[in-house]
Simulated assay, not measured.
Amino acid sequence: MGYLAEVVAKESLVPGGFGWTMLEAHKAGQIPVEGAIGLLAGYVVAAFDTTISAISSGMWLFARHPDPWDLLRADPALVPSAFNEIVRVESPIQVFSRVTTREVDLGEGAVIPSGARVLHSYGAANRDERHFPDPDRFDVRRNLVDHLGFGYGNHACAGQGLARLEVHAVLKALAARVERIELAGEPVRALNNITRGFRSLPVRVS
């Protein structure tokens, strides 16, 4: 956040780009400087922890499940579907929270009062057997479009377009060059309250 504040203060942004548009909106008085920095963060963060976590989770899944990798190599058009399935199964952002603005009745006697902080789990929702058949199976042909790995509605991830471009590019490049992905050591999970990913993931590709 300090880096982004410095970028905005020095106006070192590419004219015509998204960041420049946010800067111009701030200079015109349409949004506060904190808003410009926050919106920039939504895109920068998409290129960091969450995308890194999705790529590493994909490598881990394909190392453990070689058959889906063979399918992807044989048909690179499956890359968008495979990415959605990676995000569904491993959900780089596991949980998030909101504060209710009014009382909400969920039915069956469950009432959330106004002003309550609610923790919602994308990870659990994305493995809900009532919605996803055989939810623990990694299936690159599932072709789902309604997982909650990027949030939903007004709270959908602002940087998901960038994340998709990045991961699609990586998967397509790997599919064209790599026959097999194998674990080359014991993976170590990164401990984090929100993000699911690896601190270390030794892999070998051939």
Rank of each mutant, 00 (worst) to 15 (best):
M1N: 05
A5E: 13
V8F: 13
S12W: 08
S12R: 15
G16E: 14
G17Q: 02
E24M: 11
E24L: 14
E24R: 15
K27E: 12
A28Q: 15
P32Y: 06
V33W: 04
V33C: 09
E34K: 13
G35Q: 05
I37K: 01
G38M: 03
L39P: 06
G42R: 01
I52P: 09
S56I: 00
S56A: 05
G58S: 15
L61R: 05
A63L: 07
R64Q: 10
R64F: 02
D67L: 10
R73F: 02
A74L: 01
D75S: 10
P76D: 06
L78E: 11
A82E: 14
F83L: 14
R88D: 11
R88Y: 12
P92I: 07
Q94D: 06
V95R: 12
F96N: 10
S97A: 14
S97L: 11
R98Q: 02
T101Q: 09
R102G: 12
V104Y: 01
G107Q: 03
E108F: 13
H120Y: 12
H120W: 10
S121N: 07
Y122A: 13
G123W: 13
A124H: 15
A125K: 05
N126Q: 07
R127G: 00
R127V: 00
H131I: 13
F132E: 12
F132R: 13
P133A: 13
D134V: 02
R137L: 14
F138I: 03
F138P: 09
F138K: 04
H147Q: 11
L148E: 13
F150C: 07
F150S: 04
G153S: 09
G153F: 05
N154G: 06
H155G: 13
A156M: 14
A156V: 15
A158E: 05
G159H: 10
G161T: 04
R164W: 01
R164A: 02
L165H: 05
E166L: 06
L174Y: 02
L174M: 08
V178M: 01
V178L: 03
E179L: 00
R180H: 03
E182Q: 11
P187D: 15
L191N: 14
R196M: 04
R196F: 14
G197Q: 04
F198R: 10
V205A: 00
S206H: 00
S206P: 00
